[in-house]
């Protein structure tokens, strides 16, 4: 079964299932995978950090979404020492728009996800980030492979 991960959403799944999120632009799709138990997780991160004390959707931000995803993995039975991460997205969709703050959110998302993974000592084994095009990603929990589909540059697997 393929589970859909929405924007600002996080989900985990087991062997035989896949996790998919559509149309990543400046957002970053981060996936965690435990090779032995074949438990996988995916979060669709929209922004680098949460700047408010109010109740927010944890999955929306890199600094809260990555720890959330890790906890969801552990609850399902994954072991932290085996978990490896992959990430994709973080594009600047409007190539000519360097001056615009909202446009730079892609690179900032990439950095924030890397930082959040670093803090948790989770290694990043593959990534397909940056550029100025959208990506749809799918994590196969049987293999841990991350399929990436783009509009302009076809498909690839990392």
């Amino acid at each position: 079964m393929i589970y859909k991960v929405g924007m600002a959403d996080a989900k985990v799944a087991r062997d035989g299932d896949s996790l998919r999120t559509l149309g990543l632009g400046s957002c970053v799709g981060v996936t965690l995978y435990d090779e032995l138990t074949k438990i996988g997780g995916m979060a669709h991160i929209m922004l680098p950090t949460s700047n408010t004390d109010k109740e927010v959707n944890l999955a929306k931000f890199a600094n809260t979404g990555v720890p959330l995803l890790l906890n969801m993995m552990l609850e399902l039975g994954a072991a932290k020492a085996r978990i490896k991460a992959k990430m994709a997205g973080g594009a600047q969709m409007f190539a000519n728009a360097h001056g615009l703050e909202v446009i730079r959110v892609g690179p900032r998302n990439i950095e924030a996800v890397q930082e959040a993974l670093g803090k948790l000592n989770i290694p990043i084994v593959a990534s397909a980030v940056g550029g100025n095009y959208g990506r749809t990603i799918e994590l196969d929990c049987q293999t841990g492979k991350l399929g990436i589909r783009t509009a302009q540059f076809g498909e690839s697997v990392i």
Partner: peptide, 27 residues
């Protein structure tokens, strides 16, 4: 308005640029 910025790509990837706020509006 700013100058126009153009992109031809997946709709959601593009529209996200208008949704980037950390205001707690329940997404």
């Amino acid at each position: 308005p700013s100058i126009p910025y153009i992109s031809i790509d997946m709709a959601q990837a593009i529209l996200t640029v208008g949704l980037l706020s950390d205001a707690p509006l329940g997404d």
